[in-house]
Design a binder for these strands. Sequence first.
DNA 1: AATCTTGCCGAAGATTATTCAGGAGAGAAG
DNA 2: CTTCTCTCCTGAATAATCTTCGGCAAGATT
Lengths: 175, 175
Amino acid sequence: MENIEDIRPKRREPAVLDSFDRRILAALAADADRSYAALGEKVGLSPPAVHERVKRLKRSGVIRDVVARLDGTAVGKPLIAFVHVEAAGWGKSERLMQIARFPEVEEMHSVAGDASMILKVRMESPQALEFLLGQIHSVPGVRGTKSYIALSTYLDRPVQAEVTADWPNVPLPPE
Amino acid sequence: MENIEDIRPKRREPAVLDSFDRRILAALAADADRSYAALGEKVGLSPPAVHERVKRLKRSGVIRDVVARLDGTAVGKPLIAFVHVEAAGWGKSERLMQIARFPEVEEMHSVAGDASMILKVRMESPQALEFLLGQIHSVPGVRGTKSYIALSTYLDRPVQAEVTADWPNVPLPPE
DNA sequence: AATCTTGCCGAAGATTATTCAGGAGAGAAG
DNA sequence: CTTCTCTCCTGAATAATCTTCGGCAAGATT
């Protein structure tokens, strides 16, 4: 005998983001410290409606998490560097992955190009960077590194909800 | 006649972060969606005490902001690339700054090394990246670009509150 | 047309944020 | 050593927000 549960289609998570979702995401990516009431007023929905949508966006993974962004200098790590690591065999050795345990390492991407891996790190000092590079070089298979030290950061923001639609013709988007 | 206000020392924002601050920052950088009660339990303080500290950390700028981190793929930008821009004169022409208006551009650093500027961008497609590169090349003074396309991202987290203390001797920090 | 589904709203209760009045502890001054 | 001041904590009370719920309307499906 068939169970009615088997017949009913699964509740589908709407894969598409409508205009409200976009506006909510844009607002939350800029400032997640707002109340649902404030958010609702901004996007044109009631607080419960916004709440429901945010809950869905979190559950579906569109919103990965909500975090506080700290000032690197204030926490004692004023030095940002991008480290390109050239590895011999295939980049993602488990050993290299363990470099990610250092809290100084914020990003780690395998890349196409003449670097196997790009790391974004935030260090206490040039000396600390030197030590970290030592750690990286001690990983078997690592052939070399190239470091680019940031002199100043002009922009540093999270993933934006907006997507540029009309690329070819637009010289610059409006302010 | 002297005003008493002139004599009294200014209320100093404590420039140092004590152990409680550190723990609060670490917790908020990982997940800012907690209640003050939950945070307080985690760090060993009452809710009002945590509240007061968080307010101070925000006011003093240690906490820059609280944001929702979105899934790049879910918002339609699955392609991450690091673009190294080599500019002729001095990197930070106002014109190049305007590239930051594109929501695809998430970071922009001037760097020491053979690139004048490093951009982190999140694109809809390789075509979109091509268009963006076109925009960059149209900036006067830009001599060339080198793009590193991320194949996969193994780590992507915000500024961590922790700082590695004992560099030389530590081979790897504990899990 | 009837039914189902989705998604909104307003109202209400549960939870949380925020304020406030003490009070303990650490220095500084007498 | 005592006293004063300052800082920062706690617990209680109030204000605000979150979260749930019932009802309704619009569109899709049967």
